[in-house]
Design a protein around this nucleic acid. Sequence first.
DNA 1: ACCAAACAGTATCGATCACTACAGAATGAG
DNA 2: CTCATTCTGTAGTGATCGATACTGTTTGGT
Lengths: 189, 189
Amino acid sequence: MLMGMAGRPRSFDRDVALGAALEQFWRSGYERTSLAMLTSAMGVTPPSLYAAFGDKHRLFEEASALYFARTCEAVDRAAALPSAHEAIARMLDDTAHAHTDAATPAGCLMLTEPRLEAQREVLYAKIKDRLDKAVRDGDLAPAASTDHLAAFLVAVMRGMSGRARDGGTLEELLAIAETAIHALPRAGG
Amino acid sequence: MLMGMAGRPRSFDRDVALGAALEQFWRSGYERTSLAMLTSAMGVTPPSLYAAFGDKHRLFEEASALYFARTCEAVDRAAALPSAHEAIARMLDDTAHAHTDAATPAGCLMLTEPRLEAQREVLYAKIKDRLDKAVRDGDLAPAASTDHLAAFLVAVMRGMSGRARDGGTLEELLAIAETAIHALPRAGG
DNA sequence: ACCAAACAGTATCGATCACTACAGAATGAG
DNA sequence: CTCATTCTGTAGTGATCGATACTGTTTGGT
């Protein structure tokens, strides 16, 4: 009695449905994505969606958290590179490629969606931490203001995301990235 | 007979109402701005709004054109400065101030609203033209790719606008602008 | 077999969206 | 004045929004 588990099993894969929701939010943003679009993309009826994910807002939070986790993986991989210049260059290169990948919607969900400011704050902190480490390593001039540099880099990534949404190509985004690299202080300077 | 002008005169100032609509669109964006918000901000009832401006989309086009004209004035003033570095520095400085002006909504309507890509294209062209002129003047290295630089600068401005929407301060945006300046090729290089 | 539990699908909820029909009020022309 | 014309405000249009009540259906436990 009162054993929690019982009843008809779910007829869809929750992770697959979440991925479909993520892609829809990514493509159209939170506000422009209606429940009809979500249920169509996920192959799920509204009551099933609400039973599995709560409401639209919680579904978005779960989907954006998934996106954020993937992004953080790439950022952390880049940050692990030996020099700050390599790390930053890799991050910007990743950004250009990810934002123009034909297999996914253009641009970056985290950088485009207004309500994901907390995620952007974490991205900023990751970049600043990597720059601070570079200063400690003697890899970056001690006088470099890592907070200003990190804010600049997040702004550039954001600009790249916006340009990708406007139809910017990979080459165009790579050119922006390469130009931004020149704003970094020279090694040992 | 059939003289066009007659009837009850409009009870509100069309330009003032348009300015109020612009501010509302600027603050909330096109999609999030409802007609109820517009009529409330403009002090006008829906039928008057439709008689004076057409529909929501045309009202937005007129309001964003007004915003665009004002922005172009500032950009052109900056472009008239003697050196490219001065011109670009002024544009970025203007951007930082305009995006954080307490008297207006944070950020830039033109750089934030997805559907205003055509305006961004014009901004890009203005910056590129100024850089091309600098190359002709010997003010910028002849090898400098002005299209890449212009795309970079628009991306930075866009990032500044986004950061302003997230609550970024004037000082923070000025720091981004100053960092971006360092990406410009050195004079005569 | 039988029942409680959890799911699926239809059909719909009230709220809000952009938008407008209608009727009264205010003007200029004759 | 009278009348056509244009504006204003109320009130409400169909459509769509996010979210659910309800009715079966499918499962596991006994």
